[in-house]
Simulated scan of single mutants.
Amino acid sequence: MPENLIDWKAFAETRNLLGAGFVRILGYFRDDGIKSVAAIEEAFHLKDPVKLVMPAHTLKGEAWQFGAHGLALLAEEIEVAARHYVEIHIDPSELVEKVAQLRPTFEATLAALEAEASPLVERKPSSFGQRNALGGMSYG
C-alpha cells in the first residue's frame, strides 16, 4: 500500500473549490470507486485487459481530484499496463500484485478522506449536562 495516500493540500483545494457540494461529490467518489474496484477485480479474474482499462481510468481521475495520489498512481499503473496488454494481446496476469493492493488502498484512502471530511473530526465530547463529582450538573 502506498505510504502517502493523500495529498492534504490538494484535498483542501478541492474541498474549497467544491464548497457545499463537497460531501455529495465525495459520496459519488465512494460509490464510483466501489464499482470501479469491483469491475477491475472482475476483469482481472476474467483475464480481460480491455475491461480493466475504463474502470482503472475512472478511478485514477476521481482519486486525483481528491488528492488521493497513492490510489491514483496505483490505478494509473493498472490502466497503463492493461492498455499495453490489449496492444500485445496477452492476459493481465502480471497485474496480480497491483490488483491485490487496489481494494485495501481504496478502503484506506476512503476512510482517510471521509474522516477528514466529517464535521465531527477531532471534537472533544462536551461535559455539558453531565453530572460532576459532587453530584451536581456541569454546564460547560
Rank of each mutant, 00 (worst) to 15 (best):
A108Q: 15
G136I: 02
E122P: 01
A56H: 04
H69K: 14
G140R: 14
K60T: 05
F22D: 09
A115L: 14
S118V: 11
K60R: 15
L18Q: 09
Y139Q: 09
A72I: 09
L46K: 15
L59K: 05
L17K: 06
A12S: 15
F29E: 04
L73M: 15
A38P: 01
P92Q: 05
S118L: 08
G33Q: 07
G70A: 10
Q101D: 14
K60S: 10
R131Y: 08
V53K: 01
M1S: 12
M137N: 06
L102S: 03
P49H: 02
K47M: 12
Q65C: 13
I34H: 08
G67C: 08
G70Q: 03
A12R: 15
V121T: 05
G135Q: 03
E107S: 13
G21I: 02
A20V: 14
S127D: 14
V53I: 11
L95W: 05
L120E: 13
A43P: 05
L71N: 06
R24F: 07
T58I: 03
K47T: 06
I90G: 06
D48E: 12
H45R: 15
E94M: 12
A68E: 08
E94S: 15
L71P: 07
V50A: 10
I40G: 00
R131G: 00
L26H: 04
L134G: 03
Y85R: 07
M1I: 10
A68Q: 10
V121W: 06
H69T: 12
